[in-house]
Each structure stands twice: as structure tokens, then as C-alpha cells.
Amino acid sequence: MQSVDVAYAEEWKMDHGIMVPLHFLTPRYDMDIIPVNINCQGPPLTPLNRVWEFGKALRRACDSVPEKIAVIGTGGISHWPATPNSVKIVEEWDRDYLDKWLANDKEALLAYTDEDTLKDAGQGGFEIRTLTAISGLCEGKKGDLWFYEPIPIFSVGCTVGVMEV
């Protein structure tokens, strides 16, 4: 942790962003899990360049141990969760972000401003941080999109993508 600043929590109740993927990935909860959170909810939000560096730091940590580790970034793209606009999803914005994510285009991924993201993709759009961290973790590699579909009843476009390591 020479390049990023982290904090530690003794008490933490996991939200849907962690529990829903784990429900499918390890339904018996019999694997070791290290939960990691990036503030995507309210200011001061983690700057995107720090998000990228955090991904790289995670990669170094993973590479330093013999265990086989899966790193999962979970978050929505455009959405307005728990607001009067909770069914709103901007598919075009999502797909544009995903194109940059799949290309692992660092410059483009770090060029998003919070002002534009809030305006165009809602406060839920701040969650691109979790996906961009994976891009940093896989710097220089490309991604593969397995699934994307706007699902208004879920208040978000649901996405599954994997990144080369």
C-alpha cells in the first residue's frame, strides 16, 4: 500500500453490490472473501486516478501470494438508485463506457468528471469506479463483454464482463 490510502472497518454489513454476486458465485459461502469498498455514494468521492492506482495495488498484492485469486468489480453504470428516477437507465452512456472499459482505454476511463457523470448517468454512475479499478488491475489488457442489458425493474443495466490478466 505504498501508492494508495486505505482504511479498515471492523463493522460492515454488506450491501447488494457485494452480496448479489457472491450469492451466485459462491452460494454456500464456503470460499474466503476479502471485501473491498470504494466510496461511490457521496462526496468526497475517490478520484478516478486513485481508483486506477488502487486497482494496480490490488494486482501487486494478488501477485505477491501463491493463491489463485478472482477479483470482482461490482457496480452499476448509469442509474439513479432509490430516487424517483430509479427506473431510468441510459443505455447509450453505458455502452460508451463499456467500449472504453473493454478497450482498457486508460486515458478515456480517467477522463470522466463527476459533474458530467452525475448529469448524464445519475449518482449511481459514480459506481464506474469499481469497474475502472479492475481496468487498472488489468492495465494493458483487454476485456470481453459477456452480457449487457438494461433491466429497469433492477434500476440498472446488468453487465458481466471479464478482463484478461
Partner: peptide
């Protein structure tokens, strides 16, 4: 969701906290 929309319609814009609603709740936050 409807209770929030009704609140906007009856009382006007969100006036505290972090996020405001746009267009009575139809335009985002």
C-alpha cells in the same frame, strides 16, 4: 417511489442533502 414523487409535487425541490431531483423527479438527480 411514488411517495418521493408526491413529496416533490407537493413540497417542491429537494432542499437539503447531497442530490437534487430534476424535472419533478423525471429528469434524474
Amino acid at each position: 417511489i411514488q411517495a418521493m414523487k408526491d413529496g416533490l409535487k407537493k413540497h417542491g425541490q429537494v432542499r437539503d442533502g447531497i442530490y437534487r431531483a430534476v424535472d419533478g423527479g423525471t429528469g434524474g438527480a
